[in-house]
Amino acid sequence: MSATVSWPSVELDPVLRLRALAAAMPWVSLEECVIEAPFGRVWSYIEDMERGVPQFEGNVRRIEILSRDGEWLALRSFAPGGFAMTLDAVLRPGWCVMRGAFGEIGMAAAPVGPAATRFAHFEGSRRLGRLARPLFRRFVQRDLARLAALATSDRKGTSPS
């Protein structure tokens, strides 16, 4: 019967997948929110990483993309204090995961209708372990608030793309 029958299947959206990814890394802190802005506008801040991410990510002053190979990126991130970190990343619509020597970052988004977006974000450091989760939770909450403010008050010309 299977040859002629289409069985029901389930496709998880990127936000649900990011929850699963975070479950495998108990040292990260994951937060979610619904942003009252279309998916394309919200994701433009992540997609255009060099211009967009420093606008809402408090620990990043500048990003340089060192190389790009399909969805795989190597980049260098500069913190406000000048500390620089090299990261490998995978980036595609709705999904971004970064891994550096001192931390891991994940972002995912899925449309909630045409005018809103569910956004999930985690940060953490395997080196620092679970004890640092409260610190990263504050970082993530701050970043989400900034991104939501940017995306919902987006005037022409302020969006990175």
């Binding site: 496709e11 998880l12 959206d13 990127p14 998916f39 394309g40 994701w43 997609e47 990483m49 790009r68 399909g70 969805e71 990126l73 980036l91 595609r92 619509p93 709705g94 999904w95 995912a108 988004a109 899925a110 449309p111």
Partner: peptide, 14 residues
């Protein structure tokens, strides 16, 4: 067969 970040569409993709 993923697309590059520079050519991404505007909807999330699996």
């Amino acid at each position: 067969g993923q697309r590059s970040g520079a050519e991404v569409p505007r909807e999330p993709s699996a």
